[in-house]
Write a protein that binds this DNA or RNA. Structure first.
Lengths: 154, 154
DNA sequence: GCCGTTGGTCTGGTCAAGCAACCAATATGC
DNA sequence: GCATATTGGTTGCTTGACCAGACCAACGGC
């Protein structure tokens, strides 16, 4: 992120180095809503052109987006989410839910997640593979998975 | 975020305005690991002191952290997560999982989430309230929840 | 009275973000 | 053939965020 990195042995820090820059999450959010072209991102986000260029390039470099030609003469590309990129949807939906719960205005949530198959409401949750039940935030801890090499971060 | 805001009717954008700045997610990650003092964050993160001051103040203003005095003379505060702040844990765990899946090195994930009660492995997942089943990323859409006022964002 | 601890503030330089102008390849209208 | 529009950028300048390090302040211990 920002050229300098967080430089930590931590999957959260590593993830943020790729998607933690300003605008990046919103670009991915829009890509999940089927925005694909430079102009589309530009007009929806109100981002500076050079910054958008930079973010799209970085996302392509990191395998979140891929460039797909949609016409020759002039050669033009669309930016499509890869599988790796689409797998960021749970992160975004989880943020959306938190925002809905804590930052919504009177009108309620602007947008809701839905199950394609049955139109049911989709929620993000933590689940225990042992108990096979949803786990409330208060019941989660984390622990180091391997011998702590440097003792830093997690 | 950055003084200017994303200015969108979108819970993701609103959330990012509060926690989307550089370092903020890592501060919350550390707070979830029971780091509470200025020096603690400072030494674990390698963040500039003035930036840490700024981020802690913003998190307190936004009700993610609260200042709790732990001694008088000199008056010293710890920074504790509020409930609102602790509810960001699913966001961070979801990012951690994505990083584990896509960015881990040979040694595997540095840290894993665990259910306090049964020591089972905790995973983040999307679930349908209708089907009461986990929902794969490919089966989720979002739709506007109210009449689209401006037609922008979600 | 001096050092160490904790939690900052201040300063000055670097680098990212924002904005507007410009560029390039092509299609379209006349 | 020339002007104009469309799409997707690049360039250059300005502003402002981030960084490192110095400094400050309140106190405890010796």
């Amino acid at each position: 992120m920002l050229g300098r990195t967080y430089d930590q042995v931590c999957s959260v820090a590593r993830t943020l180095e790729i998607v933690g820059e300003r605008w990046t999450f919103l670009i991915i959010r829009d890509a999940l809503l089927d925005v694909r072209r430079f102009d589309g991102f530009l007009s929806r986000l109100g981002i500076a052109r050079n910054v958008l260029t930079d973010r799209l390039n970085r996302l392509v470099e990191n395998g979140i987006l891929e460039r797909v030609a949609y016409q020759e003469r002039p050669l033009r590309y669309e930016y499509h989410l890869t599988t790796k990129g689409r797998e960021l949807a749970p992160v975004i939906i989880t943020m959306m839910e938190w925002g809905d719960r804590h930052l919504a205005d009177e009108a309620g949530p602007p947008r809701i997640a839905e199950h394609k198959d049955c139109a049911g409401h989709v929620v993000a949750q933590l689940a225990c593979e042992e108990c096979a039940r949803p786990v409330p935030v208060g019941e989660v801890t984390t622990r180091p998975a391997r011998a702590p090499l440097s003792g830093v971060a997690g």
